[in-house]
Design a protein around this nucleic acid. Structure first.
Lengths: 173, 173
DNA sequence: AGTTTATGTCAGCTTCGTTGACATTCCAAG
DNA sequence: CTTGGAATGTCAACGAAGCTGACATAAACT
């Protein structure tokens, strides 16, 4: 572990060197550069078919929550329905996503990936997982645990709770 | 530390449970949600003045590298010069950034924040640091070290080297 | 019957990516 | 010294993907 972060005073106080403005600033820049690396591979694949990150996000969450409704997706993605609709329209027209009228509530549309959509999702997610796995492997398990911990604290708490509720609902049913 | 990540076989092999597809996928989603939180506060401030993230990025790196050239900024930001120019044009017209013709090479433009630009930069960066600092504090120093380690490995290695060379040049001169 | 909710769509605006064309400046080869 | 290519910066136009506002439709709820 970084020596500069482990120093303590002999009175036992936490050393707060990891909270200096300069350390924080480095973290901010690292986040910016890392996010670029994080999206680079899927971006290339998406560009081949004329899609963007918006399509990737929709595909990803439909894969995780098959049968989810449009409203649900709106909450997770945090965009307007007009914006999502443009993306979804294209995915449906291209035969990657299927939209079925809800059984209990026929106003709702339940969204599913088609076989073609599943294949594309696999291509995207394998590319991205490869990159993240390489970073994880290089950094080691302790670093990964810390990485996840900081990210959890950086999210909007409401969104995090909402998302975990969705996951529980999915896994519990 | 997460117990599931610490298990080892009695032969001493690393347990690779932190590299399962499901763990990686959770990391990917965490990255997505965290990045939203990470940019939320500056986004609000920027929106008040009709700016976007592109302006924030330009301001940030001009602050870090006063007198940097347009080409330098292009390498760091990873966009086309035409795209950056629009952003820079506006910042210059609004009196946040000053562009001075290079002394040795008069094709170059050296970029500086004006007093007004410095003030705006401070407002943006304080908002973002507040959020990141809160996450750091909640997660603790070990987690932060791990966070930084994983992010470093997630970046494009060439970009990382390039950026560190710039930093050394700045700090060494 | 009237209201609310879920979804979809049209029009129009903005940011911020892109490519192409072009002007300016510098440097180096002839 | 001149001239042609390389580096740099700007202008124009296009596209993707956000946004707001208005409105339509259908289903569900009261």
């Amino acid at each position: 572990m970084n020596e500069r972060l482990r120093k303590r005073t002999d009175s036992g106080d936490e050393d707060l060197l990891f909270l200096t403005d300069d350390q924080i600033r480095r973290g901010i820049e690292a986040m910016f550069f890392a996010y670029r690396g994080f999206t680079a591979d899927p971006d290339r694949i998406l560009a081949r078919s004329g899609y963007g990150r918006a399509h990737h996000r929709a595909i990803h969450f439909i894969k995780r929550f098959p049968g989810t409704t449009v409203n649900n997706l709106l909450d997770i993605l945090g965009v307007t329905k007009q914006s999502l609709n443009r993306v979804l329209r294209r995915l449906i027209d291209d035969g990657l996503v299927e939209s079925r009228v809800g059984e209990q509530d026929r106003r709702q549309r339940n969204l599913y990936l088609t076989a073609k959509g599943e294949a594309f999702e696999r291509e995207l997610s394998e590319a991205q997982r490869r990159r993240v796995r390489a970073a994880y492997r290089a950094a080691g398990p302790e670093a990964v645990a810390g990485f996840r911990t900081v990210l959890e604290h950086m999210m909007d708490p409401d969104l995090r709770r909402h998302y975990e509720a969705l996951r529980r609902r999915r896994d519990g049913a």
